[in-house]
Nucleic acid binder design. Sequence first.
DNA 1: CTGTATCCATGGAGATACTG
DNA 2: CAGTATCTCCATGGATACAG
Lengths: 137, 137
Amino acid sequence: MPLPGSSPHLNTKECNSAMRSVRDALDLLGGKWKLAIIVSLLDGPKRFKQLQRDVSGITAKMLSKELKELEVNGLLSRSVQADVAPVAVTYTLAPYGETLLPVIDALHHWGSQHRMNIMHPQEPVAAKTEVSAPVAA
Amino acid sequence: MPLPGSSPHLNTKECNSAMRSVRDALDLLGGKWKLAIIVSLLDGPKRFKQLQRDVSGITAKMLSKELKELEVNGLLSRSVQADVAPVAVTYTLAPYGETLLPVIDALHHWGSQHRMNIMHPQEPVAAKTEVSAPVAA
DNA sequence: CTGTATCCATGGAGATACTG
DNA sequence: CAGTATCTCCATGGATACAG
């Protein structure tokens, strides 16, 4: 069952409007880091440095940029503790950010299945062109 | 194993392995065109030119490249009709490609909600920093 | 600690022309 | 029709140094 209240699948006319939504989601989450940050924050509020450790490989510049975008979109909130010595900034997943859980689950579920298919291919999953066709040159 | 019916959420130790799956999915679907192509093929088999019309804005080069990647990953199949005059190539969504429906639905569902939140903000969704902090300079 | 500014390499992707 | 080959532009993002 595809979606409660949605069609079995989309016809061409619905495609364009449907794609707009999908693109919205993908533009927001599709980067290299956004989901990793959100997933890390599912664990609880974190500080900048802590996030940088968790999201392995990300640079301060990227982290800062991504956090800004996520905040502007209401997915997380930023709070500053100015009274402590070297300033403490905490990032917290907003309730709105938690609405992403179904999306994350879907990606995670499919992704882990796909990973298994690739590593333990029961039946050849890969390309199978019906005539000849030098697919990958 | 964290996800049969989806856990409440992921802890830090599970994050890395979970992220690998999520990244797998995102790497495969995250581009600008992949999902659009797949969604278009949900409608039924299509030919190259037809796809290029459907997926508005895509160039032949990109379409060709994306189709190749999708085929290699077993999400669609390519069939050549060499006997007809100017050669007909048809792309068909593979059964494996249809396993993406839940993912697409999740993205579509969240994306359309998000689009509504942005256009008709009931309550200010956007950034709200607790202290001062010139967030977006 | 929490970022920002700058420089720079890489590659993603458009335009165009060409081939089978 | 169904692509491929080049050339080129520009955004992404890493490294590094600096700032509040």
